[in-house]
Nucleic acid binder design. Structure first.
Lengths: 258, 258
DNA sequence: CGCGCATTTGAGGACTGTCAACTTCCGTGG
DNA sequence: CCACGGAAGTTGACAGTCCTCAAATGCGCG
């Protein structure tokens, strides 16, 4: 494990302010794993033996029932997952699958639970992390129950915009089918929702979404601080410049082909 | 505050195994409040200054957006709520409203946060409580996204049955309109869902629901340990006898009036 | 260049919400 | 004790939302 990776893990909310000794205990038995695209890191129902830390790549958390499947979260570095199951030493309620090649740090659950007992500050940090996760799920539930699918998409775009770069262009980091499931709809309806947003200043070209009329989109989306978390995110920022280049090349190409 | 109330609070998962001194610190500034029916204990967006412990009555947690409202949870004694906001010293994401006359213990948030810093075991207990709440919300999200409304109702009845008494009769502790919102549907559709369950051995008479064919209902509901928490609950158990009396009196009365 | 997969588009149907009328229940006041 | 009024619950008709299936299109990779 590289020193830079250690620093990134140490920078997680989960470890801020904890004693160096605690950090050493927690990460002593940890090991870094490279995982190919499409791999199942964890299946719902499995006993959870590790806390996972995503250092590179994308991971989706999903749940299944009766031959149906739904995406519950899409994770980008640096983030931890399955902390609740680790704290309770329980079985997983969600499955975890890589959406691309990933680097994942696996910390033994025992080490986490021991560190909690030894270091109050770590236990408090775990509480804060779980409290944040809890509140994220409350927001998500309100989003699902109070808004229709187009409203959810509109707010997703606004949130992504704020998290990424606050520019005119939002890049989707994953397939649209995955996004559709995350937002609680089918891929077909995601397509139609994008079309429905067009009169509100949204245009889609592949994985790039352009918001040409922010005010109009916000008028439809009605973002709410009690549902949508517009806080700028810790993770890396997708360069706006790249997006613009991608788009202009596209436009030129399609213009030429007409 | 009665001694019996103190014992009930001490019996909460949140306080099991913590030092008596910690419990004393946490509950020192607490005060018991009687609240009339329909009172708002907390409005979303408010700063949360207290951890609430419901000792008697029923409380609903709900969220609003754009003139719509949805019930997120229905609480019965003994349970705590708004712990996540207390831990983070944040504003409430949910409003709390009494559904009947209630007794609520209010513990200052400062006391909780201080107790966490002083007693690792308490911090761990808070983590476990939050982890349990988090997992409850994950279950709820899967329920919402993977099942249609009739399936949700069927599983709700099975869960209520297991939690209450595992008898043939389930008593609804609240108005059907509240249950409808909790399950993510309109009162009208809840009515229709109950009607749809009739061929599967479910009959409704006022607040009493009779499950005459458990196997048939389970065949439709397909309960899943990774979604539905069928663990027998800590709270008081509604006597089956009462339910039966209620039903037979009803039946006799309506038979006589014909 | 062509194949395979993701995405889009269209048509039809299932599920859910809205509105209105009606019934039942329950507490109030005569 | 009974009549009344209001609210909750139910039912029906209709509309909107969302899903399913099928086919077409577009795009990336070999």
């Amino acid at each position: 494990m590289r020193t830079s990776d250690i620093e990134r893990v140490k920078g997680l909310p989960l470890f801020t302010g904890v004693a160096p000794e605690t950090f050493r205990i927690a990460t002593a038995g940890a090991y870094l794993q490279r995982v190919p695209n499409g791999a199942m890191l964890l299946t719902e129902g499995d006993q959870v033996d590790f806390l996972y830390v995503l250092l590179d790549g994308t991971v989706e958390l999903h749940g299944t029932w009766n031959d149906r499947e739904t995406v519950l979260a899409i994770l980008r570095p640096v983030s931890t997952f399955i902390l609740a199951a680790v704290v309770l030493d329980a079985t997983a309620l969600m499955s975890a699958r890589t959406l691309e090649r990933c680097e994942v740090l696996m910390i033994p659950g025992d080490a986490i639970r021991t560190a909690m007992r030894l270091d109050t500050r770590f236990a408090v940090a775990v509480s804060r992390d779980l409290a944040g996760g809890y509140r994220g799920l409350v927001r998500n539930t309100k989003n699902l129950k109070l808004r229709n699918s187009t409203e959810r998409l509109a707010n997703f775009l606004l949130m992504q915009r704020a998290a990424d770069n606050a520019g005119r262009v939002v890049r989707l980091h994953h397939e649209k089918r995955v996004l559709a499931s995350l937002l609680g709809m089918t891929p077909e309806n995601l397509s139609r929702s994008f079309a429905a947003l067009q009169p509100h200043g949204v245009t889609v070209q592949g994985p790039m979404v352009t918001i040409s009329n922010l005010a109009a989109l916000e008028r439809l989306a009605k973002p709410d601080p009690l549902i949508d978390n517009h806080a700028p995110r810790g993770g890396e920022i997708i360069a706006d410049a790249d997006a613009e280049v991608w788009l202009t090349e596209r436009t030129r190409a399609s213009a030429g082909s007409r």
